[in-house]
Computed example of a mutant assay.
Amino acid sequence: MLKKLLPFEELVYRSTFTKEELIAHLQNEIEAEKSFGLGANRFSYSKPYIGKVYQNRFEIKKAINYRNSFLPVIKGEITDDINGSKINIKMGLIDFVKAFMILWLGGVSIACLAVLYNIIFGEGLNSETGIFMLIPFFMLIVGIVMVSFGFKFESRKSIIDLEEILKAKIVQ
């Protein structure tokens, strides 16, 4: 259950293509990123994924025309296998977003603990401060839902897309 909420995925695909064929195919299926991504410029891409391939590794993300800070970064490693190749995939958040959300959710969690302490050992909930004391809990729930939904919505699409792009099937 917890794994379904966390913003990461680890998958293994198998392809009948050799490692070299798959790397060449992958280079034709993705496009280089045109910008840093933080500016107001909107670029259009001719391919559905952007990123780079280097040796037997790649790092890609979906080329979208809307904002989603929780868009998965897909890192993969292609290795030779008995009848083709094996692709190990890790999807996760951008490092900056991951650090920001850890700090934000950590701070809000501490506030929730302080409120609980105050409720249990302090004056409890009263009509004047009761609703305001629930704000940290609301922020925690909204933050978790925002990260989970934003990431999982896109990762589910990418899992399916990767089968086509990699000419492979999920084995794990």
Score class of each variant (00 low, 15 high):
52 K>H: 06
43 F>Q: 08
150 G>T: 05
120 I>F: 15
15 S>T: 07
148 S>G: 12
119 I>T: 15
151 F>M: 12
172 Q>K: 14
119 I>F: 14
101 M>D: 05
123 E>T: 13
38 L>K: 03
152 K>H: 14
58 F>R: 09
94 I>T: 02
127 S>K: 13
86 K>T: 07
171 V>P: 03
130 G>S: 13
130 G>I: 08
135 I>M: 05
68 N>L: 15
87 I>T: 00
69 S>P: 01
104 W>K: 01
47 K>T: 04
92 G>K: 02
126 N>S: 14
84 G>K: 03
12 V>R: 06
8 F>L: 12
81 D>M: 04
9 E>A: 15
83 N>W: 07
11 L>V: 08
154 E>K: 14
83 N>M: 04
105 L>A: 04
130 G>M: 11
82 I>R: 06
142 V>M: 14
122 G>I: 07
122 G>K: 12
149 F>P: 04
140 L>R: 07
141 I>G: 04
171 V>L: 07
54 Y>Q: 13
169 K>I: 10
21 E>F: 08
153 F>R: 08
171 V>F: 04
102 I>M: 06
89 I>F: 00
85 S>Y: 01
32 A>T: 11
74 I>P: 11
24 A>F: 01
92 G>D: 09
27 Q>K: 15
60 I>S: 03
58 F>H: 08
80 D>F: 00
29 E>P: 05
108 V>R: 00
31 E>C: 10
110 I>F: 02
172 Q>W: 13
32 A>W: 03
111 A>E: 02
114 A>Y: 04
169 K>G: 14
77 E>K: 09
103 L>V: 02
11 L>K: 03
166 L>E: 07
28 N>Y: 06
170 I>T: 12
100 F>D: 01
113 L>W: 12
61 K>G: 04
104 W>M: 03
145 V>W: 14
90 K>C: 05
